[in-house]
Nucleic acid binder design. Structure first.
Length: 606
RNA sequence: GCGCCCGUAGCUCAGUUGGAUAGAGCACCUGAUUCCUAAUCAGGGGGUCGUGAGUUCGAAUCUCGCCGGGCGCGCCA
C-alpha cells in the first residue's frame, strides 16, 4: 500500500500568513522545516521530492535541548542516501538563519535542536488573550461528523458508580473532539426492548399492588427489588386506581413497562444532569425495532451475502450442561475479524440484542456519522470485535467504530475498599457519589487515569486540599491567578485589565527562565489538544493541567526569593501589566482545559 | 482451552504514537514563610520498565513465546 504513494502526494501547501495564524507554534515550525528541505532539494544539496510526512517537530523531553527538536535528518537519511549528521548540518545552517531562531545545534544521532527568540514566545500570550478559552481550538478534525455514544445504561434503575467513569469519559471525549475541530454528536442508546424491561414492568406492578395496600412480601428473584420502584408503584396507583390490580398481565404489561421506563429515564437523565451531562440524542431500541430498522439492517447484510443458517461449535473450556447443537441465523462476523460468526435471531425467531445494536449503528451511519465511538464497561470487552465487524460490514467499510473500554473503579473510604454488590444491597449510586465528593471532583478524578486501566477512587483523598489531590492543585493555581488579578484591580482601571488590553501590553520585560517556561508550557496546549483528540484520550488533559499548575506554583514561589518575579509592582505599571498578561493567560488556559472536562474553575478556595 | 485489556519506584499512576540520561504525586529525608493564599515551593534517596528472544541508527513503546492479574466466551442485555 505504502509503495504506490508517489512523491507528489507529499507536497505540503505553502505557508501563507493566514495559514500560519491557524497553526500552533510547532506546526508552523514543521512547515518551516519542510520548506527548507524543499529548498535544499531545489539547490541540489538533497534529492528532490523527499517524503517529509514522517518528520516531527516537538518540544524535546530534555529542557537543555532547546525549544523545538526535529528528527528530520534521521528520517531522511535512508531515502536521501546520506549520513544523518550531514543532512542535519545542511538543514541547521539554513534554519539558523531564520529570524525567529536564536540558536541551532545538531546533537546525538542527528537531532536538530532549535532555540526560538523570546519575542516569538511572548507573542503566544497575545494569542491566548485574544482567543480566550477558545485558545487551543483547532481544525484537526476538519469538521468530520463524529457520534460518541456513552452511558447507555439499561433503564431499570438509577445510575451507579460503575456508570460514572464511562459517563465522564464519554462527555469529556466529546468536548475534546469538538475542540479539536470535529462535529460531535453525543448519544444515549436506551435498551428498552428486552426481557429485562418486562421484568421492570412486573416489578412496577408489584409495587403498584403494594401501593394499593397489599402485602407483597419479598420481591421475587429476577425482579428489581430496589426501593426506587416504590414511587413508581405509587404513581401507577394514583393514575389507574385498582383497575389492574387483579387483571391479566397481558392487559397491563405494555402500559406499566412504558410508564416505568419513562420514570427510569427521568431519573437517569437527572443523575446525568447532576454530573453536568446532557446528551444530544436519545435513541430508543424499541423505536428502532418498531420502525423496521432491524429488518432493514438484516436485508442489507443478506444482500451482501453475509447471512446464513448454521450450527456453531460449543465454546471450549467452558462447561455448558445444556448445550445442544442448533441451527441458527448467523452473521459472518468472522469475515471481518471476529473469532466466530454471531447469531442474529433467537430460537423463538426474535432478534438478539446484537441484531438490534447493529441496527442502531446502521442507523447512526445513515444519519451521517462515518466515525462512531462507543464507551463501554470492561465487562463488554467480548462484544467489541463483533460490533466493529458489524459496522464494517453494514457500512461497506465506509464507517469506523472505535470502542473505548472503561475499566472498573474501586471506591475506597476510611482506607478500606468499598465493595459494591447489588445482591448485598449496598451498591453506591452515582447520586451518592456526587453528594459525597461533588460534581467537579468526580469529573476530574475520573479523568486522571487512562480509561483502560483500573483506578482507585479514594473518597477521603479526593476531598483533601493538598497537593496529593490533582483537582485541588489545579483549582488552586487558577484561584491564585484570580487573586492576583483582583489585587491588581485596585491599581488599574477596569479597561486596562480586559483581555484585549492585556493582549496589547508591552511584554518585553518577561525574560526570566521561569516565566519563559510557563509561556512555553501554554504554547503547547493546542498541540496537546490535537494529540489527545487523535488518541481519543481525555486523561492527557488532566496531566497537562497538572504540569501547567506546577509550573505556575513554581513561579509564584520564586517571587518570594526574587522580588523581580513578583506579579505586581506598584511602582512599575509596564512591568506589572506584562505579568498580569501572563497570569491572565494561565487562568485562561486552565479554564480552557477545565472546560473540556466540564469542570468549573474556582475564583478562590476557602 | 480461546479472545481482549493490563504489568513501569514501597504505593497510586504518567510516558508527547519508535527518540537523547525512563518521569510525577504520595510516603521517607533536608531546607524555604515580617512577602500577591506555605492549602505552596526548592533539593535528596529510591528502577533488570513482569520475563526471554526478535525487528533497526534507536524499544517502556512494534512482533513472537512464556509468567502474573482483570474481563469475556451459543438464543443476557
Amino acid at each position: 500500500m505504502r509503495d504506490d504513494v508517489s512523491p507528489a502526494q507529499f507536497a505540503f501547501p505553502p505557508i501563507t500568513p493566514a495559514l500560519e495564524a491557524r497553526m500552533n507554534i510547532h506546526q508552523s515550525f514543521l512547515a518551516n522545516i519542510r520548506a527548507t528541505i524543499a529548498e535544499l532539494g531545489t539547490d541540489g544539496i538533497l534529492p528532490a521530492d523527499l517524503d517529509t510526512s514522517k518528520i516531527s517537530a516537538e518540544p524535546p523531553r530534555e529542557a537543555g535541548h532547546g525549544d523545538i527538536s526535529t528528527n528530520a535528518a534521521m528520517v531522511l537519511a535512508k531515502s536521501a542516501k546520506m549520513q544523518p549528521r550531514d543532512i542535519a548540518e545542511h538543514l541547521a545552517a539554513r534554519l539558523g538563519a531564520l529570524d525567529t531562531v536564536t540558536e541551532v545545534k545538531v546533537a546525538g544521532p542527528g537531532f536538530i535542536n532549535l532555540t526560538l527568540a523570546a519575542h516569538k514566545w511572548r507573542g503566544i500570550l497575545a494569542d491566548i488573550l485574544n482567543t480566550g478559552t477558545a485558545y487551543g481550538d483547532s481544525d484537526f478534525g476538519g469538521g468530520a461528523k463524529v457520534n460518541v455514544e456513552y452511558v447507555s445504561a439499561n433503564p431499570t434503575g438509577p445510575l451507579h458508580v460503575a456508570h460514572a467513569r464511562g459517563a465522564v469519559i464519554g462527555d469529556a471525549l466529546a468536548k475534546l473532539m469538538a475542540k479539536a475541530g470535529f462535529d460531535v454528536t453525543t448519544e444515549y442508546y436506551i435498551n428498552d426492548a428486552g426481557a429485562q424491561v418486562e421484568a421492570l414492568a412486573r416489578s412496577a406492578h408489584l409495587r403498584y399492588r403494594e401501593a394499593l395496600g397489599e402485602d407483597i412480601g419479598e420481591i421475587p428473584e429476577g425482579l428489581y427489588p430496589g426501593d426506587y420502584m416504590i414511587p413508581v408503584g405509587a404513581a401507577l396507583a394514583a393514575e389507574y386506581g385498582d383497575a389492574f390490580k387483579e387483571a391479566d398481565e397481558a392487559s397491563w404489561l405494555t402500559l406499566f413497562r412504558d410508564f416505568a421506563i419513562e420514570r427510569m429515564m427521568d431519573t437517569v437523565k437527572a443523575d446525568l444532569s447532576a454530573l453536568g451531562i446532557e446528551q444530544d440524542v436519545f435513541t430508543s431500541e424499541r423505536d428502532l425495532v418498531d420502525a423496521g430498522a432491524v429488518e432493514d439492517m438484516f436485508s442489507s447484510l443478506d444482500q451482501k451475502g453475509l447471512i446464513y443458517t448454521g450450527v456453531l461449535e460449543p465454546p471450549k473450556g467452558k462447561k455448558l450442561e445444556d448445550w445442544e447443537p442448533r441451527p441458527q441465523t448467523l452473521f459472518k462476523a468472522s469475515e471481518f475479524g471476529d473469532d466466530v460468526d454471531r447469531p442474529l435471531k433467537k430460537s423463538d425467531g426474535s432478534w438478539t440484542y446484537f441484531a438490534n445494536d447493529i441496527a442502531n449503528h446502521y442507523d447512526k451511519f445513515k444519519r451521517g456519522f462515518p466515525i462512531m465511538v462507543d464507551i463501554f464497561g470492561a465487562d463488554h470487552g467480548g462484544y467489541v470485535k463483533r460490533m466493529k465487524a458489524a459496522v464494517t460490514a453494514i457500512s461497506g467499510g465506509a464507517a469506523d467504530l472505535d470502542v473505548k473500554l472503561c475499566q472498573m473503579v474501586h471506591l475506597k473510604k476510611d482506607g478500606k475498599p468499598l465493595r459494591m454488590s447489588k445482591r448485598a444491597g449496598n451498591f453506591v449510586t452515582l447520586r451518592e457519589l456526587i453528594d459525597e465528593a461533588g460534581r467537579d471532583v468526580v469529573r476530574f478524578i475520573m479523568l486522571t487515569r487512562k480509561q483502560d486501566s483500573q483506578m482507585e477512587f479514594d473518597l477521603d483523598k479526593v476531598l483533601e486540599q493538598t497537593r496529593d489531590n490533582p483537582v485541588f492543585y489545579v483549582q488552586y493555581a487558577h484561584a491564585r491567578c484570580r487573586s492576583v488579578l483582583r489585587n491588581a484591580a485596585e491599581l488599574f482601571d477596569d479597561d486596562e485589565l480586559t483581555l484585549a488590553a492585556l493582549a496589547g501590553a508591552d511584554m518585553t520585560s518577561l525574560d526570566d527562565p521561569a516565566e519563559m517556561e510557563l509561556i512555553k508550557q501554554m504554547a503547547s496546549w493546542p498541540r496537546l489538544i490535537d494529540s489527545a483528540a487523535e488518541a481519543r484520550e481525555p486523561h492527557r488533559v488532566a496531566y497537562y493541567l497538572h504540569d501547567l499548575a506546577e509550573c505556575f506554583h513554581g513561579l509564584w514561589n520564586k517571587g518570594k526569593d526574587d522580588a523581580r518575579l513578583r506579579f505586581i509592582h506598584e511602582d512599575d505599571k509596564v512591568r506589572t501589566l506584562a505579568r498580569l498578561a501572563l497570569v491572565q493567560s494561565v487562568a485562561t488556559v486552565i479554564s480552557s482545559g477545565l472546560k473540556v472536562f466540564g469542570v468549573t474553575p474556582v475564583e478562590e478556595l476557602r
